[in-house]
Write a protein that binds this DNA or RNA. Structure first.
Lengths: 352, 352
DNA sequence: TACCCCTTAGAAAGCGCTTGCTGTCACGAT
DNA sequence: ATCGTGACAGCAAGCGCTTTCTAAGGGGTA
């Protein structure tokens, strides 16, 4: 029913071994033989049996990209860039041997993260890129570390992108970590420079490293400016969703009606913050300044446009893709810091 | 080096066949034997060899989801919902047999679309979901049709989501087609109802069916209202990117300074339209009304909020996932129309 | 002319799993 | 006591490919 290597071999009047070698191109085959084989492949419309090939060769051309939430452009942009780089040209010398770069959506669930890793391990994936902030839970970190270790030992290359380094980094080829602390710090300094002193902070989920790092940067800036009142009062945790920004802002305003600025966990959350403020009749930035984080594409289109910290998501994703494919040498130590750039737009202004 | 089925069998003191049956759960195995096997699996930390299993069983647990641009939430939302449904609970009775639902980013390229399909075919994928508008090119349609036919014959289930039906639909289990025509028509009628007569249209790439359908709906509404001047003058084609909306609006304004409304190919393009108008000093909606399409999450956060047509992306994606997994029976004829709902917000107003 | 080496093709042994078929055993029915 | 039957377990034959090893030819060199 389905065409096999043997069929192609018969048609080209060579042995299966020769067909395999033509297809893989890693063994000398005379030009006219190759020609004949390729013609047969074409005529029979032959498609290699991936599982059989992976079994025999003990490797596969599958590359996994794990993301927390693919509906969020933050991950979509990184994943897309990584995928382009991985399955793009130059990935490997021989034609017809493209990598199958696939995106796996963990929905932020630690279990699903591990499940996907197991599934990729089962498929003997050639490489894996993990994106997005990690969970702080020690149990999960240990489980991830163990799982990544197994993958690495089985020959799978692992790269982390936009995620803090593993405690014991030797399972991982390279880590691209965003400088969330520094970015948040610069953002808060910007606000302080505009005269703001009562600054609300809508943080992300407390169990994520990204949340903690951004919050730490924020607090460090406040502390450096001599503002050391108990900041917990002006910090509200939530999710990375827009609705979280809305709810948190209502809460913050109740706690401190004299708020003159609100910092959001990210741009999406900032949208919710703006909506809540507007609903209360507060003008942005005249009454309250607002800032986000990430600089997602829509940040420039809100009104006023969002002041934020630009993270080079596409560049980082692409670099992760190149690293994991060995197109680019891994840096010594395997760790690369990725800076965020403060982008000042209309949503922040001097304190009135 | 790596643990195999035989190792597990030895440890549990049963035959490999028994281990396989425990793992697959499709054959009676005595409770204590099963227990022993599972313990051995656990102790040895055994992970099934996917390729070997797929080869022997002639099926795999891979499910592909093709999207045009994963950085675009339009696709991210659909793909995420589909993936959740596919790899989620209830997908199959037996544990440890989750589907590996993966997203493949074609970047809108016909070649990459076919390449991914071949790659999935090579992996003997269990199912494939194709999202997003198709290309109008007859050559490509024929190639796709042929490829999908081969997949279907090889046992791969195919579902189209947010994409027009294939000309000869028997390769496909089901098609969820968005009613782009109807949505665009209602949107234009809304504008006409507000008194607008000079309506610019920023269309998407001419080679995509989505573009054509939306444009057809728009023109049908105009025609029904007795506006039959050569509409080409007020239509500009571009991409589905924000920048396209900006450029096109500049062009439209040059062609017709008396414009009182602009319809965009989608919400993202509408953002660019708004930016261009604002830059020209035109107020929205007082001077010019603007509307988008899709109702992406950010549409409510622009200022003013975007009037648009809501497409139930998550629902459609989820349904496609359920259909392709056989969790839901395919409708007779295999075709399902998905309606868009007009959502009126602040960006459209009566003509001044 | 004899020898060696290089190039290219084939034979065949797996890779690790699934599954049809063949036992084996215990039990109730005859 | 005998046989049929149902419930499990094992044997062994592949699934379609890769790759090592071996063989065959075809110059070049001495």
């Amino acid at each position: 029913m389905t065409v096999t290597l043997a069929d192609v071999a018969a048609r080209a009047r060579v042995s299966p071994a020769t067909v395999s070698r033509v297809l893989n191109g890693n063994y000398p085959v005379a030009a006219d033989t190759r020609e004949r084989v390729l013609r047969a492949v074409d005529e029979l419309d032959y498609v290699l049996n991936g599982p059989a090939s992976s079994l025999a060769a003990a490797t596969s051309d599958l590359v996994g990209i794990l993301v927390n939430d693919i509906a969020d452009p933050f991950f979509g942009i990184m994943a897309g860039a990584a995928q382009t780089e991985i399955s793009g040209p130059g990935g490997s010398a021989r034609a017809g041997c493209e990598k199958l770069a696939v995106i796996c959506n963990t929905e932020g669930s630690p279990e699903r993260e591990l499940t996907y890793l197991t599934l990729l391990q089962r498929q003997r994936a050639a490489a894996v890129v993990l994106t997005g902030g990690a969970l702080e839970d020690p149990g999960h970190i240990a489980a991830m570390s163990a799982k990544l270790g197994k993958l690495a030992r089985a020959g799978t290359t692992v790269v982390l992108c936009g995620r803090p380094p593993m405690p014991d980094g030797d399972q991982v080829l390279a880590t691209l970590a965003f400088d969330n602390r520094g970015g948040a710090r610069r953002l808060t300094e910007h606000l302080l420079g505009l005269g703001h002193r009562r600054i609300g902070y809508v943080a992300g989920p407390p169990e994520r490293t990204t949340t903690r790092h951004r919050l730490e940067g924020h607090r460090a800036a406040l502390l450096a400016a001599g503002i050391d009142e108990p900041q917990d009062r002006l910090t509200v945790h939530g999710s990375y969703a827009r609705s979280s920004g809305y709810t948190a802002t209502v809460e913050l305003l109740a706690r401190e009606p004299g708020l003159t600025a609100v910092l959001a966990a990210n741009d999406t959350v900032a949208l919710g913050v703006c909506a809540a403020l507007r609903e209360k009749g507060l003008r942005i930035p005249e009454d309250v300044s607002v800032a986000g984080f990430d600089d997602l594409p829509f940040a420039v289109d809100t009104w006023p446009a969002l002041t934020t910290v630009r993270l080079p998501l596409a560049e980082a994703g692409a670099r992760a893709g190149r690293l994991v494919m060995g197109k680019e040498a891994a840096p010594v130590g395997g760790r690369v810091g990725v800076e965020g750039e403060l982008v000042v737009r209309g949503s922040t202004g001097v304190r009135r």
